[in-house]
Simulated assay, not measured.
Amino acid sequence: MTLLSLLLNLLWIVTGGLWMAAGWAIAGIVLAITIIGLPWARAAFSIAIYTLLPFGYRVVPREQVTGRHDIGTGPLGVIGNLLWLLVAGWWLALGHVLTALALAITIIGIPFAWAHLKLAGLALWPIGRAVVPAEDADAARRWPPVAYR
Rank of each mutant, 00 (worst) to 15 (best):
L11P: 00
L11D: 00
L11N: 03
W12T: 07
V14F: 12
V14I: 14
T15I: 08
G16M: 08
G17V: 03
G17T: 05
L18R: 15
W19K: 14
W19V: 12
W19A: 13
M20R: 13
A21M: 06
A22V: 11
G23C: 03
G23Q: 02
W24V: 02
A25E: 14
A25K: 15
A25H: 13
G28M: 09
I29W: 10
I29V: 09
V30E: 08
L31H: 05
L31Q: 09
A32I: 05
I33F: 08
I33D: 00
I35E: 03
G37F: 14
L38G: 06
L38K: 10
W40I: 13
R42C: 02
A43I: 08
A43K: 05
A43V: 11
A44N: 05
A44Q: 04
A44F: 01
F45Q: 05
S46L: 15
S46Y: 13
S46R: 15
I47H: 14
I47A: 12
I47V: 14
A48W: 00
A48C: 01
I49S: 15
Y50H: 15
T51N: 02
T51Q: 05
T51M: 06
L52E: 09
L52H: 03
L52M: 09
L52G: 14
L52I: 02
P54E: 08
F55Q: 01
F55R: 02
F55H: 04
G56T: 06
R58Y: 10
R58E: 15
V59W: 00
V59K: 09
V60F: 08
R62A: 11
E63H: 07
V65P: 00
V65G: 01
T66A: 07
T66P: 11
T66E: 10
G67N: 05
R68A: 15
R68V: 15
R68I: 12
D70C: 04
D70V: 05
D70Q: 03
I71K: 12
G72E: 01
G74V: 03
G74E: 01
G74A: 02
G74N: 04
P75D: 04
P75L: 12
L76A: 12
G77I: 05
G77S: 02
G77E: 04
G77F: 12
G77C: 01
V78Y: 13
I79Y: 09
G80V: 06
N81E: 14
N81F: 09
N81P: 12
L83N: 05
L83K: 09
W84E: 07
L86M: 04
L86R: 00
L86S: 06
A88M: 10
A88N: 06
G89F: 11
W90C: 04
W90E: 04
W91H: 11
W91S: 08
L92W: 00
A93F: 14
A93Q: 11
G95C: 00
G95A: 04
H96G: 13
L98T: 07
L98G: 03
T99N: 03
A100I: 00
A100V: 01
L101C: 14
L101T: 11
A102S: 08
A102Q: 03
A102N: 03
A102R: 06
A102G: 11
L103Q: 03
L103S: 00
A104T: 07
A104W: 04
I105N: 00
I105D: 00
